[in-house]
Amino acid sequence: MKASTFKYLHAQSKDEAYAAFAEYGDEAVILAGGQSLMPMLNMRLAQPAVLVDINPISELSGIVLLNQQLHIGATTRHVDVANADLIAAELPLIGCAIKQVAHRGIRNRGTFGGSLAHADPAAEMPACAVALDATFVLQSRAEERRVKAVDFFLGVMTTDRRPDEILTTIELPAQTSNDAWAFHELSRRHGDFALVGVAATARRRSEGLEELRLVVFGCEERPRISKIAASTSLSQKDALELATAVAEDLDPMSDLEGDAKTKRIQARTLIQRALDDLFVEGANG
């Protein structure tokens, strides 16, 4: 199908985008890589009056390391995240998961911030952002807000971003050698949205793992830290028991790919694989 008519604005600066938000309010929709929005336009699931294309705003793109924090510009394309030496060295969880994001042609165009702002429950990057305790920088003409990833995702394709704000930068603490991580995903075809997936980080201690941040995606309405996993300081022998408990605590949405019971079983298996990875030093990277 073809998109319905809209007015198209090529924003050359954040100020031009803010001016469009002021004039058109929530009739204006931000276009970044367009790899989620364009299908919605073509299928007329979205029919905005105005598209504000932020691709020309060069300051919104790029990856830098500042004070042990990776700052990823919102319009940095997936392919550039996947190929960045900084990501491979400092954020191996993202480096691993980004390879599972969509297909080559979509990674060449889709953006890191766009995937987060779109907030598809089956997308990889929102889950990784929560597991890595990312901070999202949101700017409007009036103010700049910093929102933790765990507070940003409110529901299916619903976030804390206000219509007059641009998600400009995502800040992620660099992973260290003491940070264990794991990523597993089940999909029918490489690059498809996950049926179920798991992103997890933890700190290695001599007595096992602490600060376990385990996020299941493709399952519930939004990515969240498993409270059961977080409250546990566990050793490897408890992994099966914990995987079962975390999976039981899920409230999966049934969809065409599987009912809630199926998803819980799939999640339990992936959680167990993730916990096994976390315990094996150097299993990842």
Partner: peptide
Amino acid sequence: QVIRGCLML
């Protein structure tokens, strides 16, 4: 770079 022609205006 290869992209989807239907997903770019």
